[in-house]
Each structure stands twice: as C-alpha cells, then as structure tokens.
Nucleic acid binder design. Structure first.
Lengths: 341, 341
DNA sequence: GCAAGATGATTAAACGATTAAGCAAGGTGG
DNA sequence: CCACCTTGCTTAATCGTTTAATCATCTTGC
C-alpha cells in the first residue's frame, strides 16, 4: 500500500499542511520540524503523487510526443524518429518531466491529451493543412511543432534550415560537375520541410544557370522501398542523369540498393546525396554523403522550448532554426566524362 | 477551462453520481436519462480526467516502457528499440492505455513510477543481476520483462527463442562449409539473450563435431562501432576464419564496413550473419543474412501480457517464447576452396 | 389497503495532495 | 501593560471523480 502524505504527517506528529509546506518550500515551517519531516520522507521513501498534485494544480509533469503513422497501422521505420524522441526524453530528464509517446493517425482522436491532462505537446511532421493540425491547436495547450513550417503567427516551432540543406546538397553535386540531378522526395507539396529543400535545390540550380526540369523530380521516394523503386525510374530517363539527391537517408539507401541491382555503381555511375544523417550513414557501403541535422539535439531543443513555455518562462524565439551541414562521404564523386550523355 | 463532470451534471439536471454511473455503466440509470447525459457528453466533448479517476481507483491507464541507456547520457542507436516501442504502443492502443517512454541508467531512480502511479512496466534488456532489476521488482507493480531470461519464478517474460537463433545462424554457416566461425557479441556473460545465443552456437558446433574455440569469440561487438573494430581482430587471427556470426545487425553492419575497408569482400572472403532483422537488413549491400525476430510483434505481445495482468485477467503463460527464423540473404556464401588456410 | 421489493435517483465520503485562512504563543514598541 | 506583529503551526476547502449508503417513488402481491 502506497505511503502518502498523511503517513508522513502522522509519523512526524504534524498536520499534512506542514508536510506539504516543507515539500514545496512555501509557508513557514521551523527548521527543526522541516528537518524531521525531511528525514522521515527520506526514510519512508515517500514520493508525492502527481495525480493528486495535478488535480489541484492543473499540471502533471507529463508531455506527449505525437508522431504520425506512415500508413494506417503501419509503423514508421525511419530511425529519425527514435533519435528525435530520445532527444526529447533527454531534454525533459533534468526537469522531472516525463514523456508520453503517442503515434497518431490522421483521423485519430486526441482525447488522451485531455484525459491525462498532458502539460504540453511536441508534434512531429504534421502538415499545417491537415485536420489533425487544427485538432491539436484546438486543445489550446503549450505545443511545439517540429519540421512543420507553419506560417501562422504565435506557433512555437523547431526546424533545421531545410532550404540551406537543399541548397548545400545540390551545390555539392553541381560542384562535382553534375548538371542533371534527380531530386527524390516523398511528396511534392507547396509547404513543409520537403518544399523548403526543394526551394534550396532550385536556388542552387538557378545560381548555376541551370533550368529546373520537372522530369528530374520524383515523388514517393521518401521510404526505403520508395527510394528503391526510384532507381528504375532514374535509369529510364530520356536524358541520362548522373546524380540524385534523395531527401531522406532511408530513401537514399533504397535508391543505392536499387541502382546496385541494376548494375549501376555508386558513385562511379551515379552520385547519391541523402538527407538527415541518421546514425548509420557512415557505415553504409558506400558511406553516404548527406545533409546532417542534429536530430537528437533538435529533440532536446524542442523539449526545452516546450518546458519553458509550460513553466511560464519568457520565451523570445518562437521559431528556432538549427543549422545543417554537408557531410561529404563516399557516395558522391566527380562526374566522369565517360558517364555523360 | 476544462469541462468537468459537474458541468455535465448541471446541464443534464442530475447529480454527478448519475453522470458517473452512465459513464461507468454501473448503478441504475433510466435509459431516458442515460441517453440525455450521453448526448450532452458528446456535445460538450467531455472526457473524464484520468487524474481524478486514478486518485480514487488507483489506476492511471499509463504504462511505462523502460529502456536502458547504452552509456551514461549516450543514446542507444539500435533501431531495435524503436520497433519494440512502436509495437508496445500499438498493443496498448485499443485498450485506451498510453505509453510513457523512459530511458534509465543503471543507477537512475525509478521514482517516476510512483509519482505518476504508472499501472505497469515493460522492461527491456535488464540483467537479472543488476541493482536496477531489484529496484524494479521492489516497486511491486505488474511488470513484463523482455529479453531478460530471468530464472526467478513468477516473473512475466517475453523473448524469442534465442538458443535456436544462435543454433540456426551457426548451422547455416556450417552448412556452407565454414568451420571456423567467429562469434561477435556484446558481452560474454552466463545469462541473458547473448548467452542463449552462445549456447546455440556451441550446440551447432558440437553437433558438427567441432571444438568450441574461445579465440573465435569476440566481445564488445554489439554496437556498430564495436562490430567495426572486430574486423581488425578477425583478420589478425592466427588461424584464418571464413565466417562471422554477429549477435546484432548493427554490429554486423559495422563488421562488414570494417572488413570492406580492409579489402575483405563479403561474402566472397568472409560470410557474415547478423541477428535481429532490423528494418533495413534487406537494403544493405550485400543484403544481410540474419536471424529474424519479429520485434514489433514482440512489443505487442508484451503489451498484451502486461495489460492482461493489470486488468486482472487470468494469464496462464508467464514466459512467452516467440519463434525466430533464418533469413538467408547475400552476406553468406559457400566457403571457397581458395579461401581456406 | 399496506408491507415489501424494484427502480432511479441523490448525498456524502473518499482518494492525496495544495493553499488560503485562522489561531495560539511569544516578542516588541509606545 | 496592552495592542500588535511574528512565527509556526492547524483547519478546512478544493481539485474531479467513484461508490457505498440512503432515500423517495412506484409496483406488486396478498
């Protein structure tokens, strides 16, 4: 049977109010009494219940990370999320907050937020035009969006500089002499992370005086399987391409696998750049040139931003942009003359 | 301001007890009143607070998954955990339970369990001889251990048949003509998953009439970096080995990378078998022969077992063993005559 | 026509904390 | 010496829900 504040009070010969006061450092309690109570708390290994506390105070020291399902009932394989969630968990650790992990589908209900009186939300990769987005806003609790590029004011957000990422990846390939660069992405949209990266891609092309060719942009390549299928599409292109920029590392992995099976060598025949720098890119064969974002750190930052909001601390920045970095590895190489046209 | 049971009661013109009764289906409420109350609940979008409910009932519809840190402050990169946690989350979904994710270090305190009145625990990969294990047992709440091979009776556990896995992997290599098979593992112990797999390895060797050679067993190869370093150790072996069985896929990936850098071809020069069948093994180059365990399903089973316990349902099996399966892919091949001695 | 049982509701205590308000005892100033 | 302030505690209400106990009506059987 769990030990409560009453037990402590009884043993110390004081009222529960006094115990509560030493617990919260409020009110006037003599040092002598306080010491005695603290000793008993220690001895009895008493931990106040957040349930009872939360009922009174309207806070639960619980935040929830909301991660979308890829497809109904299908789980998102991208290790990206694991790193992110690990970061969030890390970011809450020293503040005695705990993390609830919730995977939601587009039309899932969010009643768990009310039910559990969750203090705040970290939402990953939700499009601003989805019904889910509105449902989340309607909850009216502290929320941080990650990788959402929401334009509405007053929204707390954390992202990386995705436009720069798209630019750097493309620039790198251009600098190696590639001028027909396939862009493999998940879904072509007019917003969101992939859109930003697309803008970066276009910017780099424009700077190099190259035209933006929609034939080179391939959708449904965000997953490993999607990237794999993109390999075929690349090889049947009317005009040969010598490089591909895949907007996710897992997609890049799939693509390289597919190219391999079709007898194309990476990077000799075709260079590939990924995106994210998930944990194993260095160990791929060939190791993957990619745009690094510090995913773990991003999770920690989001947690920090959320907790500050919850604790009512002044939070100046409403939108945090973290840097990205080009990691050049073995999957990209100078365009060989033999390879062209 | 959150809407409470009182608001519903007032609007329906009844007492809160009546509302509570229709909420819980207990007590006698006329169909007419019940219908009216349900309508109002629907309209007002009322969700009862688990906080208040839990305070009275001693349950919170919250379970916690406890995942160990690899090192202090360092996050465990293995996507294994993500699949597992996803499985657990999936397994709780239809029962309105939520999942708290907690990464704990050996000496971390578990007070969050008491604080949040967590209903149950799913614990991954904790050794039975650790202090953490005792601390968890001392909490005296429903718990399911995964991959722990605890011999104490009365403990609920879920694992795969790791001995069989070790056996199948080794047998496969033997059947391809390899007779010096390196075993790369995390830590040599006398218990736990790796020990079981080691037993399987030994069993297969014994059946083939081969001696168990401790020089072939390499520790600290559980991580990607560990596997990478094992490559060197393998190549300097006094008597050449033509195959390696790595007890984790990420270790195998590291090993293959290492071998590659040392000019050794997989599988031509050396065959490699992994363990787990994490999501990308098929996309590795070469694709990885491995022992498949259905990690997602394991998570779901663990959740099911835990919830049954929490709900007081009769749970006959205290230890669930899930099958494993050998997935033969491209990282293993027949031993070439040129390769021996 | 009346006791007894059903039916459908209400009242009130309880869960484990917090916190405003109250109160007793000792100290201080005029 | 008395009013008043401190100090250190207690009392009691409250948070949102459940549930045992109670109660008022209405049926029903005899």
């Amino acid at each position: 049977m769990k030990i409560t504040i009453k037990d402590i009070a009884k043993e110390a010969g004081v009222s529960v109010a006094t115990v509560s006061n030493v617990l919260n450092g409020t009110g006037r309690v003599s040092e002598e009494t306080a010491k005695r109570i603290r000793r008993i708390i220690e001895e009895r290994n008493y931990v106040p219940s957040t349930l009872a506390r939360g009922l009174k105070n309207k806070n639960t020291q619980l935040i929830s990370v909301i991660v979308p399902y890829l497809k109904k009932g299908d789980f998102e394989e991208n290790p990206f999320f694991w790193q992110l969630v690990s970061g969030v968990e890390m970011g809450t650790k020293d503040q005695a907050f705990n993390v609830m992990l919730t995977r939601v589908d587009r039309d899932d209900d969010l009643s768990f937020v009310k039910r559990h009186n969750v203090d705040g939300l970290i939402v990953v990769g939700i499009n601003a035009d989805s019904a889910l987005y509105q449902n989340i806003l309607d909850l009216k609790i502290p929320t941080v969006f990650m990788d959402s590029y929401i334009e509405q004011p007053g929204i707390y957000q954390v992202h990386n500089d995705d436009l720069l990422g798209g630019y750097l990846g493309t620039k790198h390939l251009l600098s190696q002499g590639h001028d027909r660069i396939v862009l493999v992405m998940g879904r072509l949209a007019d917003r969101g992370v992939e859109y930003q990266r697309l803008l970066g891609y276009k910017k780099a092309l424009a700077e190099a005086g190259l035209a933006y060719d929609t034939h080179l942009v391939m959708e449904n390549g965000g997953s490993m399987l999607g990237g794999y299928h993109a390999a075929q599409r690349i090889t049947v292109l009317p005009e040969k391409a010598t490089a591909a920029f895949v907007l996710s590392d897992i997609g890049a992995m799939g693509l390289i696998k597919g190219l391999n099976e079709m007898g194309k060598k990476v990077p000799e025949d075709i260079s590939v750049v990924g995106y994210d720098d998930i944990f194993y890119t260095e160990y791929m064969i060939p190791s993957l040139t990619t745009i690094r974002q510090d995913i773990f750190k991003k999770g920690m930052m989001a947690a920090g931003l959320l907790l500050a909001q919850i604790n009512g601390e002044p939070v100046p920045e409403q939108s945090i942009f973290l840097p990205v970095e080009l990691k050049v590895r073995a999957s990209t190489a100078k365009r060989l003359e033999k390879g062209c046209e």
